[in-house]
Each structure stands twice: as C-alpha cells, then as structure tokens.
Amino acid sequence: MNIFRLTGDLSHLAAIIILLLKIWKTRSCAGISGKSQLLFALVFTTRYLDLFTSFISLYNTSMKLIYVACSYATVYLIYMKFKATYDGNHDTFRVEFLVVPVGGLSFLVNHDFSPLEILWTFSIYLESVAILPQLFMISKTGEAETITTHYLFFLGLYRALYLINWIWRYYFEGFFDLIAVVAGVVQTILYCDFFYLYVTKVLKGKKLSLPA
C-alpha cells in the first residue's frame, strides 16, 4: 500500500459519500444519472465476489463492503425513495451499448478463464465506461450542479491516482496488471474534458454550464 493507492481509495470513498449526502440533504437526485449508478452497483457486485473466497486484509474487506453498501443505497435513493425527483427524461444513454461489448470483451481478454476472474475483468472494463451515462446527461442538459461536479472530480481523481500507484508498484514491486492499467487509462481519459471544465470554471466559483 503506497500513498497514491491510499489517497485514490479515499478519493473514491469521498466521491461516493458526496453523492449520497447530496441526494440525502437535498432530498433530490436531480441531475444524477441513475443509469451510471446502476452500472457502478453492478461493477462493485461483480468485482467483490471474492469477498466470499479470499481474505486480503481488514482494510480491503471493509472498504469493499462500504463501497457495495453505498452504491446500493445510492441506487435505492434514486429509483425508490426520491424517484419523483429522478430526471429520467434526460438519462437516456443506452447502457446495453456498454454492457454487451464489455461483457463480450471480458470473455475474450482476461487473465484466467474462470467465472470469478471473468466477472472481475467485466467489472474493470465496465467501470472504465460506467460514467458515460452521467457525462451524457450533463452534455444533454448543458449544466451540472456544483456538488455534482465535486462528485465527478473525486471519482475521476481516484483512477488517476491509481495510475500513479501502478507506476509506483511496477518500479518498486514488479507488479503489473495490463487489464487494470489499460482500463484505468481509458477511464481517466474520459474525465479529462471534465477536469478541464472543473479547474477553469468550478474552482473559480462559476457553475459548470456548457455552451449551447
């Protein structure tokens, strides 16, 4: 465990908590893509099945449980408790265009052709693109609440920190996981446009709105 990995995990946790608190405090999930949140719940579910088969550390197990629980809580708030505020008309990304190719790819390109490993690979690939419905929604409405941009910033920062963690681990531990690295690079690239807007607009106190 190096500092980049730890701050990456904490950044991920911060993103998840920010989103939950935003929805809970405002009693509204306006501007949030339920589809992205469903995909993240699927990502955590398929990745953390190893909770049943292997124990790595107390830290590892507790973080996994927290991520899974929070992602299900978020989906519950969006689709059940605050369903009336869910902006389904703008959440129109076709998730089958992500899930089907990602599912196929995880069968073709994986470390080991076993059920658990294929599901892990599926979750890694799916996570890299799971934010697309949310970004699509923002591009459609042309704006995002500031708190939503903080959520996206920490979510993007997490994978960027993991990239540095992988460089670190390659040099100091000889660890290299091509699947995770390639997917992590793709995932981080998807946030670059958003990072630019976040730094140039949100951090200067302006609301994130896109030109019409």
């Binding site: 995990d9 991920h12 190893d50 292997s54 991520y67 470390h111 080991d112 490993e117 996981d177």
Partner: peptide, 10 residues
C-alpha cells in the same frame, strides 16, 4: 501476477 491469488486492489 497469478490471477487465482485474487486482486488486492479495490
């Protein structure tokens, strides 16, 4: 890295 050993990252 042996895949069967599991993944230590989140």
């Amino acid at each position: 890295q042996e895949a069967t050993e599991g993944h230590d990252e989140l």
